[in-house]
Design a protein around this nucleic acid. Structure first.
Lengths: 178, 178
DNA sequence: TGCTATTATATCGATTTGATATATTGTCCG
DNA sequence: CGGACAATATATCAAATCGATATAATAGCA
């Protein structure tokens, strides 16, 4: 499942412009799938060429034309086929954790600060998900929203209980440097 | 922090060939950062050009030459600068969860199967981390290893407790289709 | 009046993935 | 003994994707 396919999926929920599709990624899928204009617009062009979506232009008086995309029945069939396939493995990349793997090269204060900031960030994310969750209509969106909260909460607890492993390491390092 | 920088980081732990760097990514960083040959070899070439690593070729009798890379002092300084920077946000992409966001289009049996398989996969990952954890030398690697176990465990529990949200949705769908 | 946010399009270089190619050695299984 | 496969080692390439940037009008706020 690539971004092209997911654009198709978003269009099963109703017609939309490229801009609106981007907003949907940000507001409803940000936890699990990100997409930039640089991938969305080319995706929509390709889908149009292939007859999987259709596009009607709505001219606006003083703004650039809106291009409103609709999924075709061929598009619906293809999307259905795609979600029946076994999904590829998650891709996760964390500069934050990669940095911590070199904690022995960092001053002790920097490590503590990194962890404090991470916890604060996670708390803030949980809070913003809390308010979001209530406004979610479908059970699926509730499910995703609570999934995010659960994972962030687990991370916070892990950091609080295990930060000493990294911080002790750093103390040794700075003592050795004396 | 890009793959180029992380190659530099791996070389702070000792000289290595491109092949060995790839193995390090797989064996010690797979949970948080993946890299393919297609990014590692070009990264090493660029680092060499820039004088951040040096390269000596070790000719072998019947195999292709080994190119052994060492970090230079300029490289060490640069890497230190890099890890002192604020790390960029995590990037996470899950085709699995994206598929679940369209659970209403799937047959009920397919949803249950997806969830069962995910739980089995996570259990298996935990098990393989368990045996790995013991062989980890540094506290930092123990920290990462247990981080992975904790997150996978939290996911399993969440799925077990909340799968009904998606499965109930599907039942409604199939009843409506009757 | 000027600043920023929102709506809307789109492109482009740089990064990265995933597949593929090449070549030799070692190991396992029947 | 032969065949298949895994491991060691290099490298490239098309395709996907990111992140930044450009353009342009309106709305709202200070």
């Amino acid at each position: 499942m690539d971004i092209r396919t997911l654009c198709l999926g978003i269009l099963t929920m109703g017609d939309a412009t490229g801009y609106e599709i981007k907003k949907t990624f940000e507001e409803r899928l940000d936890l699990i799938f990100q997409a930039s204009y640089g991938s969305i617009y080319p995706a929509l062009n390709k889908l149009t060429e292939e007859g999987l979506v259709s596009c009607r232009a709505q001219s606006q008086e003083k703004r650039p034309d809106k291009k409103i995309y609709s999924i075709t029945s061929a598009g619906r069939y293809l999307f259905f086929d795609e979600i029946m396939k076994k999904p590829a493995a998650d891709r996760f990349r964390s500069e934050y954790l990669a940095t911590l793997m070199f904690a022995h090269l960092l001053p002790a204060a920097a490590i503590s600060e990194l962890i404090d900031e991470r916890i604060a960030d996670r708390l803030q994310k949980i809070e913003s998900l809390m308010s979001d969750c209530d406004t979610r209509q479908t059970d699926r969106e509730q499910f995703l929203c609570n999934y995010g909260r659960t994972m962030y909460q687990a991370e916070i607890e892990y950091l609080q209980e295990n930060r000493h492993l990294l911080e002790a390491d750093a103390l040794l390092g700075s003592r050795a440097a004396e």
